[in-house]
Design a protein around this nucleic acid. Structure first.
Lengths: 177, 177
DNA sequence: GCGTAAACGGAGGCGGCCTCCATATATTTA
DNA sequence: TAAATATATGGAGGCCGCCTCCGTTTACGC
C-alpha cells in the first residue's frame, strides 16, 4: 500500500469515527471525505460501502476492548465477571452511534466482525466458567446470555452510565426476592 | 376532515406500518405513497415529517398495548407482573423496525408519545406496587427500571422471542446464586 | 530522472426528500 | 339540483446524498 494511500485511509477512519459518533450511522459520506481532505472517490475506493467503513471503525474499537480484557486480574471470579461486564458497557457506550451495528456483529455469525467478537467471548466464557466453579453464578447461565444482556442494557440507556450500572446490578442480583 | 382525506390517511398509515416493518424506519416515503395509491404531496400534508408518520403508526400500537393491559387479571402480583412484562416484549417485537423509536418515546419525556406511555407506566407501577406489598420483588425496584430493561431485552434479540423470555426470567430471578 | 503502476478527486447519473400550486373533488347553501 | 366554497389532491421540480467512472496526478523502483 502506498504511503499516501495509507495516510488517507487513516484520516478517513478518524473522521468517520467522529462523524458516526456525532451524527450516527447515517452521517454523510461526502462530508466525511471532505473532513478528511480527500474526494469521495478516495473514500469509496478504500471503503466500497458504508458498511465497510463502519466495520473498519468497529475493528479499532474491538482492539481497545481486547486490551481491556488483557488487563483484567481475576482474583474473585464473581467480581471479575462484573468488572468485565461493566467494562464492556463502557466500551459500547463509547462506541456512540454504532451500538446497533455492534450488536449485529455479536449476534450474527455471518458478520465479518464475528471473528473479533470470538476473542472477547472467550474472555467472558473463561470468567463465567471460573465463577461457576466457585458457585458465584447460577450454573445454567451462558456466555451468549451475558453478551446479549450487556448490549441490551448498553443500548437501552445509551447516554446514562449510572443507569446502565444499576441495571447490570439488578440483573446480577436478581429482582424477585 | 373530509371523507376522502380520512380514507387516504388510513391507507397511508396501513402501508407505512407494513413498509416500516419490512424495511425499517428508512423505507422510502415515495414508495409508501405509491403503495397507498396517493401522491407524495398527500402523504406530506397528512404527515409533514417522517417522524410524524412513525409516531402515528406507534400511536396505534400503543392502543393495542393498552388493550392488553386492561385484560390483565392480577391474581398473584408477582406472576401478573411477569405476564405484563412478557406481553410488553411481544408487543415491542411486533413493532418490528420501530423498536428504537419506541424506546425514545419511553425514555424521553419530550416525545409526543410520552403521554401514551404514561398510561402503560401506571399499569406497571400498579403491578409493581402490589408485588412489593406481597414482598414478591425487591423494594428498591422502580417502574423505569422495568420499562428500560424490557426495551433493552426486546431490542437485543429482536427476532427471537424464546431468548427474550429467557433473558426476562434471568433478570427476574437473578443471576448470582 | 523516468516510466509505470497506483492513487486521486470530482463531475455526473440516480433516486429519495420535501415544497408548491394548479387542478379536482367533497360539502354546503340556496 | 346546481352553483359556490372550502378542502384535498398529486406530481413536477429543486435539492442533496449516494455511488461510479475515468482523466489526471503522484509515489516509488530502476
Amino acid at each position: 500500500m502506498r504511503a499516501d494511500a495509507r495516510r488517507n485511509y487513516e484520516r478517513l477512519l478518524t473522521e468517520a469515527s467522529a462523524a458516526f459518533g456525532e451524527k450516527g450511522t447515517e452521517a454523510s459520506l461526502e462530508d466525511i471525505a471532505k473532513a478528511a481532505g480527500v474526494g469521495v472517490g478516495t473514500l469509496y475506493r478504500h471503503f466500497p460501502t458504508r458498511q465497510d467503513l463502519i466495520l473498519a471503525v468497529l475493528r479499532d474499537r474491538f482492539e481497545a476492548m481486547a486490551a481491556t480484557a488483557r488487563d483484567l486480574t481475576p482474583d474473585d471470579p464473581g467480581r471479575a465477571l462484573r468488572e468485565w461486564l461493566l467494562a464492556q458497557l463502557h466500551h459500547i457506550t463509547a462506541t456512540r452511534g454504532l451500538t446497533a451495528e455492534l450488536a449485529v456483529a455479536v449476534n450474527n455469525p455471518e458478520s465479518p466482525l464475528h471473528g473479533q467478537c470470538e476473542a472477547l467471548f472467550s474472555v467472558s466464557a473463561d470468567l463465567l466458567a471460573k465463577a461457576k466453579e466457585t458457585g458465584a453464578v447460577r450454573p445454567d447461565l451462558t456466555q451468549p446470555d451475558l453478551a446479549t444482556i450487556v448490549h441490551g442494557i448498553a443500548w437501552s440507556c445509551e447516554s446514562d452510565p449510572v443507569r446502565q450500572e444499576r441495571l447490570l446490578d439488578l440483573f446480577l442480583e436478581g429482582v424477585l426476592v
